[in-house]
Amino acid sequence: MLNAATLVRKPMRNTLKPALIMLSLLVAADAMAQVPSLAKCTRSANLLACVDADGNAYSVNTAGSTIYLRGFEVAGKRYWAQTSSRYGQLTFFTGIASDGETWVGYNRRVGWTTINRFSSSGGSSARFTCSRIAGC
Rank of each mutant, 00 (worst) to 15 (best):
residue 44 S to R: 06
residue 68 Y to G: 12
residue 15 T to V: 13
residue 19 A to D: 11
residue 115 I to L: 04
residue 104 V to H: 04
residue 50 C to S: 09
residue 136 C to A: 06
residue 63 A to L: 13
residue 42 T to L: 03
residue 79 Y to A: 12
residue 67 I to Q: 07
residue 56 N to I: 00
residue 129 T to A: 11
residue 103 W to F: 09
residue 57 A to P: 02
residue 26 L to F: 06
residue 42 T to E: 13
residue 23 L to K: 14
residue 105 G to F: 02
residue 45 A to L: 08
residue 136 C to P: 03
residue 87 Y to A: 11
residue 33 A to E: 15
residue 74 V to M: 03
residue 83 T to Q: 14
residue 76 G to K: 05
residue 7 L to F: 03
residue 102 T to E: 02
residue 11 P to C: 00
residue 105 G to D: 03
residue 128 F to T: 00
residue 25 L to V: 10
residue 98 S to A: 06
residue 87 Y to D: 13
residue 73 E to Q: 08
residue 73 E to F: 07
residue 54 D to N: 10
residue 14 N to I: 07
residue 122 G to Y: 03
residue 122 G to M: 02
residue 38 L to I: 01
residue 62 T to G: 06
residue 65 S to V: 10
residue 23 L to E: 05
residue 129 T to Y: 07
residue 80 W to F: 14
residue 45 A to W: 08
residue 68 Y to I: 08
residue 65 S to I: 11
residue 57 A to K: 01
residue 70 R to S: 11
residue 101 E to W: 02
residue 40 K to I: 14
residue 19 A to Q: 08
residue 27 V to A: 15
residue 6 T to A: 12
residue 38 L to K: 03
residue 17 K to Q: 14
residue 9 R to L: 15
residue 88 G to A: 12
residue 46 N to M: 06
residue 75 A to W: 01
residue 11 P to Q: 11
residue 13 R to I: 14
residue 120 S to F: 01
residue 118 F to G: 11
residue 117 R to A: 08
residue 105 G to T: 10
residue 135 G to F: 03
residue 81 A to K: 06
residue 62 T to H: 12
residue 98 S to F: 04
residue 131 S to N: 12
residue 23 L to R: 09
residue 60 V to C: 06
residue 38 L to A: 13
residue 47 L to Y: 01
residue 45 A to T: 04
residue 101 E to A: 08
residue 54 D to L: 11
residue 29 A to W: 03
residue 34 Q to A: 12
residue 67 I to N: 10
residue 51 V to K: 11
residue 79 Y to G: 05
residue 3 N to I: 08
residue 90 L to Y: 08
residue 101 E to K: 01
residue 59 S to N: 14
residue 6 T to W: 02
residue 20 L to I: 07
residue 81 A to C: 02
residue 87 Y to R: 09
residue 8 V to F: 05
residue 85 S to P: 01
residue 118 F to R: 05
residue 79 Y to E: 08
residue 24 S to I: 09
residue 104 V to S: 07
residue 117 R to F: 06
residue 64 G to D: 10
residue 28 A to E: 10
residue 66 T to Q: 15
residue 20 L to M: 14
residue 25 L to S: 08
residue 125 S to M: 05
residue 33 A to K: 07
residue 116 N to V: 14
residue 11 P to I: 14
residue 41 C to L: 10
residue 95 G to A: 00
residue 121 S to V: 12
residue 123 G to K: 02
residue 28 A to C: 14
residue 99 D to M: 03
residue 62 T to D: 15
residue 51 V to P: 00
residue 28 A to H: 05
residue 118 F to Q: 01
residue 25 L to D: 11
residue 54 D to S: 07
residue 118 F to V: 03
residue 10 K to L: 09
residue 94 T to M: 04
residue 3 N to E: 14
residue 5 A to R: 06
residue 13 R to P: 04
residue 124 S to H: 08
residue 90 L to E: 05
residue 13 R to E: 11
residue 101 E to Q: 09
residue 45 A to H: 09
residue 71 G to H: 06
residue 127 R to C: 01
residue 68 Y to E: 15
residue 96 I to L: 09
residue 74 V to H: 06
residue 24 S to G: 09
residue 128 F to G: 04
residue 29 A to S: 15
residue 33 A to G: 13
residue 135 G to H: 01
residue 120 S to G: 15
residue 103 W to K: 02
residue 24 S to N: 12
residue 12 M to P: 02
residue 10 K to E: 10
residue 103 W to I: 05
residue 16 L to K: 10
residue 131 S to E: 04
residue 36 P to K: 06
residue 83 T to W: 01
residue 85 S to I: 13
residue 66 T to G: 07
residue 64 G to T: 07
residue 130 C to D: 00
residue 67 I to K: 09
